[in-house]
Computed example of a mutant assay.
Amino acid sequence: MNVTESLEFQSIEAIKQCVKSGLGISLVPYFSVKEELESMKLKGEIIPQHHSSISTYLTYHKDKWLSPSIVRMIELIQNHAENW
């Protein structure tokens, strides 16, 4: 499957409601949909770890001042993200 369009929500409930309404599919932790799967309100598939791929993005405004703490956090993320 190749994803061409995506939306991002901060709320698992919002994601579940969109999927229930037929607006698409989602990759979420099992524990967050366990009840809906057991009551057959949602249908799911287990994705084996070697097939899952989740991207992590770090964004910040290029023209804004960054505190030394934020600069250090960005450096840590960049150094360690290679192993994620």
Rank of each mutant, 00 (worst) to 15 (best):
W65F: 13
F9V: 06
F31T: 13
L27T: 04
K34V: 07
I70M: 15
L58S: 01
I12F: 07
K34S: 08
M73N: 14
P29L: 03
S53W: 04
P48A: 14
I25M: 12
W84D: 06
G24L: 05
L7P: 02
K64Q: 14
S11G: 10
W65S: 07
A14S: 15
M73A: 14
S32H: 01
S69W: 14
S6G: 09
V71E: 12
L27Q: 02
M1W: 06
L27C: 05
Q10G: 12
W65R: 04
L7E: 10
A14P: 01
I15Q: 00
K43L: 11
S26P: 03
D63L: 11
E45W: 09
Q17H: 06
G24E: 12
E13S: 13
V3D: 10
L7S: 09
S11T: 14
Y30N: 07
E5L: 08
G44L: 06
K34C: 07
S26R: 00
V28D: 01
Q49C: 03
V33N: 00
I47N: 04
E45L: 12
H50G: 01
F9L: 07
Q78L: 13
C18Q: 12
V19W: 00
L76W: 12
H61I: 06
Q78V: 02
M1C: 08
L27R: 03
T56F: 01
E5M: 08
I77E: 03
S69D: 15
E75M: 08
I70E: 15
S6E: 15
A14T: 15
P29E: 05
S53Q: 10
Q78D: 13
T56R: 02
T56I: 07
G44M: 05
V19K: 02
K41C: 06
G44R: 04
E82A: 05
P48R: 14
V19C: 06
K43F: 12
I47L: 12
